[in-house]
Design a protein around this nucleic acid. Structure first.
Lengths: 334, 334
DNA sequence: TTGAAAGCGCTAACAG
DNA sequence: CTGTTAGCGCTTTCAA
């Protein structure tokens, strides 16, 4: 049924090797022969099997992308960027939602190996022994996006999460806030931890006390922010500000307040993290730490491409700076 | 370097066939032998090459997913559902953002063929001659999600877009609105066209006039809705209501009004389409036509699985009913 | 510039 | 229950 290289060879009166050469645009083919073969391929609507190519080459033009959850706009943007760059170079991207679950990541890495992926970009950020081990045994390049692994040296595109946390806290402090609640990201995520560390260092630098019991760890989803907002409303002593581990949760907190007749930033100042599109699409434009998602995705994809085709080189690290975008969700305390 | 079936065979003192049998869990293997082989595989951390498996089987455990734009929450949800189901059955999903561009879709379909995908799920919805042709020549099953192609019979999961448009219009009409603006989806999308048709039929049924020049076609993005909202604000005679082709655009329109000091639904009633999470996450909870995104994705994935493994059967069609979710973005005209 | 031959890692009859 | 054999569709030396 399927037309193969053999068929093309027969019909154009040359050997399979020659056909293979025209497939891969090898220079050592007589122009006339090349045209003849191409014509036959056209007529028969021939498509070389990448599976077969992959088998002999040991690699396939596919790169895996591991992210936390595609429903988080932050990852959607990243994914889109990576896809744009990689597709343009003839690579496909295979998606994997890890749900921030190291086991899923590991399983996926294994599959990448089995399928002979050209590379894997990891955006999800957990750190376990098993994962590290799998990573070590991987035969394709890996680039880390917004995460780092002490025990695994590789190309990294990252963001200055520490400073991001710092300037977020600083902003709130300078606005006069003292009672600040924190809804951080998962505490097994390196980036979330860095943000929190920056945050607490800022408190210390400004002579404020950082209480471990003041921080709540969330799963980065909007609903979790909403729940947290509701929780704050039930408290006797409400904080005057809150620092959220990402925009989605920040937006959830704000909505909980609005839905209960309170005002933001009047009753609560909120600063988020990421600057997803939704941050400026709502009623209260969010003050947040901007991460250039698309650009970060682009850089990661480029690094991957370099690593796949290029000559070996020492691991590269690209770090994006944190920038606070001040909008309407924060205001000075009276 | 890489450990292959040959190595395993040698080390465990059996033939490659036997190893192959334990890989695929074939019953005809002595339990003792099986354990012995498994142990060796374990020790050597052996991973069978799916590329090789795919080559001989002619198919690979991967299904392609073509969507409009992953940044649209509607597609994110769908994608997640499909991934969840397919991954659980050992299939990977490869993502393709078509940008609603038929050429991209076609190119992608070609790649699916070259890679020997087990199947392709198409959610993006353009209809061209070339695409149809490529579809016909495809050697793997295709399931269509929220689109149909007159000239291509296959499994379909769809939504009653026509009725969705109808009840949206009906709702507005019954609320007393007469001057209703329309920001429809792309007019080469079957689902968008159906919604519009339902809409216009409702007008007719209620004795209202449908003016072709009243409809604007948008690209389903938030920013486009926002622009449209601004545009409405500049008009002398403003409509009292607007029907948007999807929630993202509806939300954009609302925001344009809010940002300019107007109120929704007081100054404008808005009904959307999709019921994405953001529909109820904002200041004005959106009245919209609910499409059960996750469930639709699940059904599509199941259909795909059936088609891949199952015995051949006539094309199935699953149609989800339209349901209006009335929230706060619409109100009666005074 | 071209072809013959070997092989990538695995599966699938067919014998035994 | 197990091994032998023959490919799957393509690339890649090596000769010619």
């Amino acid at each position: 049924m399927k037309v193969t290289i053999k068929e093309i060879a027969k019909r154009s009166g040359v050997s399979r090797s020659t056909v293979s050469r025209v497939i891969s645009n090898h220079p050592n083919v007589d122009e006339e022969t090349r045209q003849k073969v191409k014509k036959v391929m056209e007529e028969l609507n021939y498509r070389p099997s990448r599976l077969a190519q992959g088998l002999v080459k040991g690699k396939i033009n596919v790169v895996g992308l591991i992210i936390g959850d595609i429903r988080n706009p932050f990852y959607s943007e990243l994914t889109r960027a990576i896809e744009d760059i990689l597709n343009a170079e003839g690579y496909m991207v295979v998606l994997c939602d890890s749900d921030y679950n190291p086991q899923k990541e590991e399983l996926y890495l294994r599959t990448a190996e089995e399928l002979g992926f050209a590379g894997v970009i990891m955006t999800s950020a957990m750190e376990t022994k098993e994962l590290l081990q799998t990573l070590q045994s991987l035969s394709c390049p890996v680039v880390l996006l917004n995460r780092y692994l002490r025990a695994f040296e590789t190309d990294v595109v990252s963001f200055d999460n520490y400073n991001g946390g710092y300037i977020a806290a600083e902003h709130l402090i300078k606005l006069g806030h003292r009672r600040i609640a924190i809804l951080a990201g998962p505490n097994n995520s390196t980036s979330s931890k860095d943000r929190l560390r920056g945050y607490s260092d800022a408190l210390r630098d400004y002579g404020l006390e950082y209480k471990e019991e003041e921080v709540t760890y969330g799963d980065l989803r909007w609903a979790t922010g909403y729940e947290f907002g509701l929780h704050l409303l039930r408290r006797q002593e409400r904080p005057t500000a809150v620092f959220a581990g990402n925009d989605l949760m920040a937006l959830g907190i704000i909505q909980a307040y609005l839905d209960n007749g309170l005002k933001v930033p009047d009753d609560l100042s909120v600063v988020g993290f990421d600057d997803i599109p939704a941050a400026y699409m709502g009623a209260v434009k969010l003050t947040t730490v901007r991460q250039p998602q698309y650009e970060m995705g682009v850089e990661a994809a480029k690094l991957m491409l370099e690593r796949i085709k290029g000559i070996p080189h020492a691991p590269k690290r690209i770090i994006f700076d944190a920038k606070l975008v001040i909008r309407e969700s924060t205001k000075p305390i009276i």
